Simulated scan of single mutants.
Amino acid sequence: MPNKEKNPDTFPADVPVCPLCDRPIPEGDGSLHHLIPKLKGGKGGPTVLLHQICHKEIHATLTEAELARSYATVEALRAHPRLDKFLNWVRKRPPGFRSKVPGRRRKR
């Protein structure tokens, strides 16, 4: 009988998937993102569960006003040039990956 080792990169079907990077979100690694920031009228509005690293990159890249005005959907976030570059990079990392060095903040 073949030895069936469990692959650490496989997750049960009920594990949520980050809508930005399409990687499974391990338990305790999710962060709720308001598509319209609470301070810009999004309190009680739509939210999505993201990896913490993906959520941090959004807020390091865009202001609350930019998020409310032009990036209030997952598709719009994915289309942003800096976020697109980040997502291409992070998709190559394991689902539980966390950066030890904080990313650069955008220039204001």
Rank of each mutant, 00 (worst) to 15 (best):
Y71P: 01
L35Y: 01
V74N: 06
H59E: 14
R69C: 07
E5N: 10
D29K: 14
A79R: 01
C21P: 06
P24N: 13
L50W: 06
R78W: 06
R69G: 00
H59L: 02
K56E: 14
P8I: 07
K100V: 08
K4N: 14
R93I: 04
I58R: 00
T10N: 13
I25D: 09
T47N: 10
T63P: 04
E27L: 10
P94A: 09
L77Y: 07
R69L: 09
G103M: 10
P102V: 10
W89I: 01
R82G: 01
D14K: 09
E64I: 00
R108T: 13
A76T: 06
L77W: 01
T10A: 10
A72R: 04
L50R: 05
A79K: 02
P24C: 13
S31K: 10
D84R: 11
R78K: 15
G45P: 03
A60L: 10
G28Q: 05
H59S: 08
A68E: 11
E5K: 08
K85M: 07
S31M: 12
P94K: 07
L32T: 07
G30F: 07
L83A: 03
L50T: 01
H51C: 09
R104C: 08
K43M: 08
P102R: 11
H34W: 04
A65P: 03
E75P: 00
V17E: 07
I36E: 04
L87A: 05
A60Y: 11
P24S: 15
V101R: 09
D29L: 15
G41Y: 02
K85N: 09
N88H: 05
E75Q: 13
K6Q: 12
A72W: 05
L67H: 02
E57H: 08
D22E: 15
H51P: 02
P24G: 13
A65C: 00
R106Q: 12
C18Y: 06
D9F: 14
L32I: 05
T47K: 15
N3L: 14
D9G: 05
K6H: 12
E75R: 09
P19K: 04
H59V: 05
R106G: 14
R104A: 15
P37F: 12
K92Y: 01
E5M: 07
L87F: 12
L20G: 05
D84Y: 02
P16Q: 11
L32P: 03
P37Y: 11
L67V: 10
N7D: 15
P26Y: 14
R82N: 02
H59N: 13
K6N: 11
G28F: 10
A72S: 12
